[in-house]
Design a protein around this nucleic acid. Sequence first.
DNA 1: TTCATGAGGTTCACATTGTGAACCGCTGTT
DNA 2: AACAGCGGTTCACAATGTGAACCTCATGAA
Lengths: 269, 269
Amino acid sequence: MSSAVKTIALLSHFSPTRPEIGLSELCRLAGRDKASTHRYLQALEETGFVEQNPLTKSYRLGPVVLQLAQARELTVPRKAGADAVISRLADATGETTHVSVLSGSTVYPLASCESYKHSTRVIIDVPTFPLHATASGICALAFGPADLMTTAVADMPAFTVDTPTTSDALEREVQMARETGFGRSERGYEDDVCSLSTPIFDQTGHFAGAVSVASVATRFTAEQERDIQRHLIGASREISHNWGGKVPASVESVWSKSIAEQSSRESTS
Amino acid sequence: MSSAVKTIALLSHFSPTRPEIGLSELCRLAGRDKASTHRYLQALEETGFVEQNPLTKSYRLGPVVLQLAQARELTVPRKAGADAVISRLADATGETTHVSVLSGSTVYPLASCESYKHSTRVIIDVPTFPLHATASGICALAFGPADLMTTAVADMPAFTVDTPTTSDALEREVQMARETGFGRSERGYEDDVCSLSTPIFDQTGHFAGAVSVASVATRFTAEQERDIQRHLIGASREISHNWGGKVPASVESVWSKSIAEQSSRESTS
DNA sequence: TTCATGAGGTTCACATTGTGAACCGCTGTT
DNA sequence: AACAGCGGTTCACAATGTGAACCTCATGAA
């Protein structure tokens, strides 16, 4: 692994919940020695990616990232076209919603929105979404580039007892997503979290990301699942539209089938 | 120079005007060979800082920068990025200092800091800064969006006998600000208060707010004005930096001219 | 069809950098 | 006074970075 990657990897430890990190703490988080970590931080400071709080000597993200974000959003506008939609989705479902984007073989969080309906809620605070263990990841595997599966099966850590850890189990999840139009993960990444997810398509017509609802497991009933699914479909269409794309007819059709089957099951039950 | 710094330095070549860069082009921009540049790009891609356009094979900024920007914004909100600076500015000038932000067509106070040097001092306690009557407002008109002037002339109450109340008078003030780089209001909003102000620019490259020194009129001599101006320039640069921006060369140049003229006037007097 | 050009990407002998246990000086606690 | 934990530095040793030369694939002119 190149030293540049190791250096840059330090940045992923900064987040809204851990905005300032001291040298020793960062050593522990990164699992490295003080000397190296300090050298990395100096490189990051030199380039403006971190700055040191003069009082506490702790490090925090620097202003340079704001400029890059500005450039990125002007190059590939994504956040602006998703924020309002996931906010409405959170209102409608009463759960935490989020949007992720696929870049290379990695699914990154783009934005999330918490609902204030319940006092318990899911907080999205991860640097990336594992392909095999999250609804967004399953969505990427089901609707994204074919070679993603190779990446996914190469590393399948078990986050919970329910995480799919065999290639077969994962294949089943992905197949299910293709048949229903929904990525799904029931306690696969975190205990007590159930997620549903739908794919987003951009102007190239390819899978670009996913929109998801992360529900607290104890609230995740069949009825809520149907409700979330219906809202997700609309959100997917809207965000795809905002990103210059359109949900393909094939996906629209499996959605119709999913919803129809539910309704009939509902009426016969 | 560490390889991490060299790697990260590549990112600075991406901008809204040059959002996608091919390998060869980036080699030329960075002044390095293809092999190294390619290795750097792989490191950046691995970490999500850049992604490759699958069609053109060109590279562009990746989604990770958005996450970092969000964390930075929560870590160091605008107020935090200005507080320390205006505090030092108050110490240096011995007067009350404040920072204002432009939101829509309104200039709001963001933070202020009083100096304890004199027993008389200005207290900033307004909900908004009138565009036509305050140094911050003049700054916004001079360096902010062009259509602000329409809003300003629509309502020009006379707060003091010195408030500019005609469109012509206001235009003169704004023109003066553009030529000198300083917003200025001598007893225009409150009797006994003279203010100087410089613009702040954020990551979008646009006018984002102003930093000001409000002086008690009886202390406001030509000498103090020069002193305040010099300190304001530094404060403007610092706050712009903290907000992810940079003072444009055009403004820097009028500042230099202002300061140079003063010095010459000073020596000939 | 040939040939030249410039794109993205790779190889490998060689040289510079990275690495981390042990260390320092400082501060606050027991 | 002894200790623990912090930010930061040293230096012998080991890995990583470097870039000229190379490959392959388009494109376009002759």
